[in-house]
């Protein structure tokens, strides 16, 4: 992205929050919504625009689990590790995912297709164990179903490997 474009986009995001006290976290949410992570060059621009030191921005990003500093894979697979899901076998799902696509929570497949993360309670505990891929929620998942779920999102080449 060229500098001009970047400045324009940051401006759009920051404007509604301008002058509101404590706006930094809300601005970072908007950024992550838009780019799926918080790119470094955007942080630089936000620092200028909000007139806060870059260190303050990074201090916040690194404290909160929700914010990502690197582009996640194309499909974000979230495995709930809340208490209900844990008791109902979520750790087995994590093992199965690793078996299928070779990555652990916090990692992205080399082809950038999947990013796997462990999350704390998605609020569907009654349907435990729960995993989500993007916005789609899969409930009462059994390890045997993992391969099929991942295959729904794989590009043809990876799908063959996954099934």
């Amino acid at each position: 992205m060229d500098q001009e474009q970047l400045r324009k986009e940051v401006d759009e995001i920051v404007k509604p929050w301008e002058g509101k006290e404590g706006n930094l976290i809300m601005v970072l949410h908007q950024i992550q919504n838009r780019y799926s992570y918080v790119p470094r060059d955007i942080s630089f621009e936000v620092a200028k625009r909000l007139n806060v030191p870059l260190a303050r921005i990074y201090e916040v990003i690194t404290f909160y689990n929700y914010f990502k500093l690197e582009a996640p894979g194309k499909n974000i697979v979230s495995v709930c590790l809340g208490t209900a899901c844990y008791l109902k076998g979520a750790p087995k799902l994590i093992d199965e995912i690793e078996k299928q696509i070779g990555v652990k929570p916090g990692e992205t497949t080399p082809d950038g297709q999947f990013h796997v993360q462990a999350v704390r309670c998605l609020g569907c505990c009654g349907l435990a164990p729960v995993i989500t891929v993007g916005q789609k929620v899969y409930s009462a998942v059994k390890p045997e179903q993992v391969a099929g779920i991942l295959a729904e999102y794989s590009e043809p080449a990876t799908a063959a490997a996954a099934s």
């Binding site: 006290e21 404590g22 976290i25 929700y66 704390r120």
Partner: peptide, 26 residues
């Protein structure tokens, strides 16, 4: 006004929550 958390359990604790609303580390 709505303010969003960002995945930190400690922010449910009221003094940490205050810091978070202020846009700081919780």
């Amino acid at each position: 006004e709505i303010r969003l958390g960002a995945g930190a359990f400690v922010c449910g604790e009221e003094t940490a929550l205050i810091a978070s609303i202020e846009g700081k580390r919780g």
